[in-house]
Nucleic acid binder design. Structure first.
Lengths: 149, 149
DNA sequence: ATACTATGTTAGTCGAAGCTAATAGTTAAT
DNA sequence: ATTAACTATTAGCTTCGACTAACATAGTAT
């Protein structure tokens, strides 16, 4: 017998983006609504509607016609994973590679869906490590900045 | 008037993968053929056929029914760009993050399509820089390896 | 209470990229 | 020269994720 609550749900990158956006809206406002999601993702409401039906089928969101959208526990867990991945990449791009915020966001949003767990873990560790090196070697950041510019 | 030869051609990631594969086949054998491309990309010949028609329309390959497939000058230029991007990522994953070859290949293949030019340039520079640091600081690699393991 | 505006839903279409099954062309072997 | 085996092409279908246009519901203001 399959445990539906914890069964592996696999998401397309489009679905991950919807889930991420919903999670961010929910944590800001307590709930999400279609038109905001549509605006944030620059798609039409009808596209959002279709995506929400898929996410609801996968037990990730609570979605009843004409009412507020919230996350299920499973959806919240998934969303946090996606957001964590985004943050690791964003952090790497901004803090170490000194990419502009906008470019860091754009790249993270696209890349977060294409990375293996292990890669992801290593980038996280590598960022930690690099910051530690800054502390011990005052020349490091200076030389890196020169090279990147 | 638009110069057709150098007009911006925008490719989907699927198309980039086809072009990359064709380029590698051409440099190995002098030409590419459908069934090899199909095997390398794990898709059916009919799917390759459809993709080749698109690439030919975009002036990237020479493709006549029942004959050998080669690259146009524009296609070769594009393919080299894609391969360069792949190599930069692969290098970063293998040399610095010490990912296994297989995982490095899989991740590079997926990520190369999602990166901005600038990000790409910075990762390249960053790899250079990091190798330089190894040379000057014998502890660096040791500490990094400990952390990543 | 009606009507206006917001917002949400549904139906139907499109393009991308895959698939299968059937057909056609090419090459090599007897 | 025919046939077998390989290779390439076409037709037609599927899914995904967008779109438009039309319609339905809810909330607000008069």
């Amino acid at each position: 017998m399959v445990n539906l609550e914890t069964a592996r749900v696999s998401l397309t990158s489009s679905q991950e983006n919807y889930l991420k956006t919903i999670c961010m809206e929910v944590s800001q406002n307590g709930y999400a609504k279609m038109s905001d999601i549509a605006d944030l993702l620059s798609v039409k409401k009808s596209s959002v509607n279709a995506a929400l039906n898929v996410l609801a089928d996968k037990n990730l969101i609570n979605y009843k016609p004409y009412s507020q959208i919230t996350l299920t526990p499973l959806g919240f867990k998934k969303a946090k994973e996606i957001i964590k991945r985004f943050e690791v990449m964003y952090n790497f791009f901004c803090e170490i590679l000194k990419l502009s915020r906008e470019e860091a966001v754009a790249n993270s949003c696209r890349m977060e869906h294409a990375m293996s767990e292990e890669l992801f873990r290593r980038i996280d560790k590598f960022c930690e490590f690099t910051k530690e090196v800054y502390g011990n070697d005052p020349n490091y950041r200076k030389r890196l900045d020169e090279l990147l510019s």
